[in-house]
Design a protein around this nucleic acid. Structure first.
Lengths: 188, 188
DNA sequence: GTCTATAGCATGATAGAC
DNA sequence: GTCTATCATGCTATAGAC
């Protein structure tokens, strides 16, 4: 064959990684197959050598997004005690709000996931429950897991719908301070 | 003329109200002009008697959404002291999560607003700042305004991306309890 | 595996009859 | 004001050359 045996999987990986960025930036529905392919220097027709349909790409994308995010956010057994606080800080940053392409999938594509198939949503749920459990255990507060994820996702979404840079920064700073105080207060 | 003088504004109002529901349910980009019109029993061609373009409908929709939501949520001078707590409870309900069409615009269309024109985002910002100020004043906590809005929007979005009804309810309940405790704790 | 070309369909928007 | 018909364009997906 004219292509090495690993070329196909490499191209698929490139397409997947690139598409995640492009879709989070411009929306998945709103982005055409041609646009996903031209982002890696290929043409639309070659898309179907790697995915059976556009919907298959979406499923693969979402799964990868949640695997990467929850792995990064949850932390492991030997993570420092201030692990969660550090993650909250970097998540609730202006850099994150300004870069949907490289940021969390939930503020960017959450509404499209909500309309997706039960299979996709079940996978998302599994990943999120892992993160929730990890944070709740680490903080000794069973409610804090879901509450913190909600606050983070909502704050980034909110920051992105306002026009001024100043208000954007205010929203994120207010959320950071609110969580700092809520978490240092003893909770049963 | 064959139509009463108020017919046009009535039809426009019907179209706007109906489109808000339809777009929040299925996404604005993903919904065609024909679909918006057939939802009120008309055909696609008549759309342009009421809006110059699909983008004009979006702008009108978002403006109306935020006017209605912030008016309902902010409350007035003679609202009871537990006004905010009551609004949080009804916002963070399973009924709200299950009904995107009649619910808040931000979890449903926030990502599409984030990609919209500066004019639209400036209008959104103005409305949100009004709500933020109202809640912050009422609670005597300058951070709580933005933090509560973020928590609410994020929790509904999160609830909608998971598959099981049970997890959906858990997310909302955890957010309600977390906010209850955070708000009853003295904050400077 | 990727290309070009194209089928088949849906879209946003316009024109003219009623 | 609303209808039907239509244009131009975009889309997903397939077919066949290389």
């Amino acid at each position: 064959m004219r292509y090495s045996s690993t070329h196909k999987q490499q191209t698929r990986a490139r397409l997947l990684d690139s598409s995640r960025v492009v879709a989070k930036k411009g929306g998945f529905d709103a982005t055409g197959v041609d646009a996903f392919m031209s982002a890696i220097g290929l043409t639309g027709g070659a898309f179907y050598s790697h995915f059976g349909s556009k919907a298959e790409l979406f499923a693969a994308m979402i799964e990868r997004e949640l695997d990467l995010s929850t792995e990064m956010l949850a932390g492991s057994a030997d993570s420092p005690p201030d692990h969660v606080a550090k993650r909250l800080r970097s998540y609730l940053s202006s850099a994150h709000a300004a870069s949907p392409g490289t940021g969390c999938v939930l503020p960017a594509l959450g509404a499209e996931i909500a309309r997706a198939s039960p299979e996709i949503k079940a996978g998302v749920e599994r990943s999120l429950k892992g993160l929730q459990r990890s944070w709740a255990d680490r903080l000794g507060d069973s409610d804090a897991g879901w509450a913190l994820i909600s606050q983070c996702v909502g704050a980034i979404l909110l920051a992105r719908v306002v026009e001024s840079k100043h208000t954007r920064a205010e929203i994120l700073a207010a959320s950071r301070r609110f969580l700092d105080k809520a978490l240092q207060t003893p909770r049963d």
